[in-house]
Design a protein around this nucleic acid. Structure first.
Length: 467
RNA sequence: GGUCGGAUGGCCGAGAGGCGAGGCUCAGGACUGCAAAUCCUGCCACACGGGUUCAAAUCCCGUUCCGACCUCCA
């Protein structure tokens, strides 16, 4: 198996050939959600972008182990628990479910493993033990444990900053810290908060520790790719690197970061209220359409959100979907999936999805022409190239993840609508267009659109969400 | 103050020295009883000022504007 994949690495800000640590295998760790609110499209864009990476690696022949964690304990969750008057773990479960539902609706594959922070306290304690033994971390005795960043031989290499240039935090408390920039691996228990016992006192994990511990637990001391949103570069990923390298681990080879969904040029703001939550947008467009939109820009480019752009993108997708529907009925068999070399070349170039979309448009055009020309060979190839590309992008309309109704069988529907269409065809034959148009209008009122083709009428059910 | 990124046609969105990616919208045309779908044609953009080059959206210098991060963040 060989791959020509090149990826951009935040660490050196260059695109380089991807070389897995173990030939044929790839380990990926993606920072997942802190489950303290329902997911918005920014969260899910990250999920979609890395899902495309994962699917492409799999299609390229790699055996992929994909880890995406759940941060189920942190300050915000505790605050929310007080606010919602339910236990902290109930808050975490509630929003973890909301994320899982959103991922599923957009056909983001479940990770190979999806570890929760609270399930890996043992690994975190082990890591802290190593760090303290190595002299990299210290426990001042109050139950906190800190990493001493001044002692690190290299720190802030990912964000290319200098320790002394950082603005110091307003709330830096030097009661226990040796340096204001030392960060907490472990936080001493406060009254009423959940805590776990450790050799240094009871407490709960700091944000950064969990990822180092869980990445090592599932992927080993060194692994291939670590991903997350741009904003995680500092401090989160810097601190993960600090912890893991201070423990003597090689950690991540490649760092990949997805860009924002922006509104009016700015990082998505809360001023839009709940309207950009995944569940809200799914009332406007189908999951497959939302995914197509979120995946359509390059993962390192800002995606400027607007409802208009979302709608336009959906129209574009429906055109492709309609083509596959026509191709399938014309060919009379299920369309295969094939990987066109041009598509592979684009995807291998740091996941050039926008280029891939241009290719798909070309193939759809070729395929439509082939339908006109009754060139089934060209049609078959175009359709399978389109479907193969859509599958990698997670937008294959045939994917069971997007299956709609299992109710009335299509045979029954086809028969019923066929009856109406026979009447209409008869009316048209005798030039009774008033009657034929009436039938078409009545079907349209039911959400069924009719297209007259050279081979007779075709019907499709309009999308419930797009009428 | 430090670090990082951005500005491309009506809109979205690629490209990173040389044929105007692609989509959406709009206009015209073909096909059609009409419609729909499809196809064809058109709409010649790269923040500003200099420079390098036979050739610059792309490289260099300068300027303006916008944004992200600096210990809560996808």
């Amino acid at each position: 198996m060989s791959s020509n994949l090149s990826l951009y690495n935040t660490a050196d800000r260059k695109i380089s050939a991807f070389k897995p640590l173990v030939p044929g295998k790839v380990g990926i760790y993606l920072c997942g959600a802190t489950v303290q609110a329902p997911p918005h499209i920014g969260h899910i864009r990250s999920g979609v972008n890395f899902d495309i990476l994962r699917r492409w690696l799999s299609v390229s022949g790699f055996d992929v182990t994909f880890i995406r964690n759940v941060t189920d304990i942190d300050d915000k969750i505790l605050h929310k628990a007080v606010h919602e008057e339910i236990p902290w773990w109930a808050v975490a479960m509630k929003y973890e479910r909301a994320f899982s539902d959103a991922y599923a609706a957009l056909n983001v594959l479940p990770p190979t493993y999806e570890p929760r922070a609270t399930g890996h306290v043992t690994q975190m304690i082990q890591l802290m033990q190593i760090l303290i033994e190595n002299g990299a971390a210290y426990a001042p005795g109050n139950g906190d444990v800190y990493l001493e960043v001044r002692k690190l031989k290299s720190y802030l290499t990912l964000s290319n900053q200098k320790l002394d240039d950082l603005q110091s935090a307003d709330d830096a408390d030097l009661t226990h810290k040796r340096d204001p920039r030392d960060f907490a691996l472990w936080k001493a228990a406060k009254a009423g908060d959940p805590s776990w016992p450790t050799p240094w006192g009871a407490g709960r994990p700091g944000w950064h520790l969990e990822c180092s511990a869980m990445a090592q637990a599932y992927l080993g001391e060194s692994f291939d790719i670590h991903g997350g949103g741009l904003d995680l570069i500092f401090p989160h990923h810097e601190n993960e690197i600090a912890q893991s390298e201070a423990a003597g681990w090689g950690f991540a080879n490649i760092w990949m970061h997805n860009a924002w969904v922006t509104t009016s040029g700015e990082k998505m703001s809360k001023s839009l209220g709940n309207s950009l939550q995944v569940q809200e947008l799914l009332k406007r467009v189908r999951g497959i359409e939302l995914r197509w939109y979120l995946g359509s820009a390059h993962y390192r480019s800002m995606l400027e959100f607007s409802f208009e752009a979302l709608e336009e993108s959906s129209i574009n997708f429906r055109r492709i979907e309609a083509f596959l529907g026509r191709a399938r009925s014309l060919l009379g068999f299920d369309i295969a999936t094939s990987i066109n070399p041009a598509f592979a070349k684009a995807m291998n170039d740091d996941l050039a999805v926008p280029q891939s979309l241009a290719l798909i448009s070309e193939w759809v055009k070729d395929g439509n022409n082939a339908i006109t020309n009754k060139d089934l060979k060209t049609l078959s190839q175009a359709a399978s190239d389109v479907r193969g590309a859509l599958a990698v992008l997670g937008c294959d309309p045939e994917d069971l993840a997007f299956a709609t109704s299992g109710g009335i069988t299509s045979d029954v529907l086809d028969g019923l609508i066929g009856l109406a269409l026979e009447q209409r065809t008869a009316a048209r034959a005798r030039k009774d267009f008033a009657a034929s148009d009436a039938i078409r209008d009545q079907l349209a009122a039911l959400g069924i659109s009719i297209e007259d083709t050279a081979d007779g009428p075709r019907w499709t059910v309009a999308n419930e969400t797009s009428k």
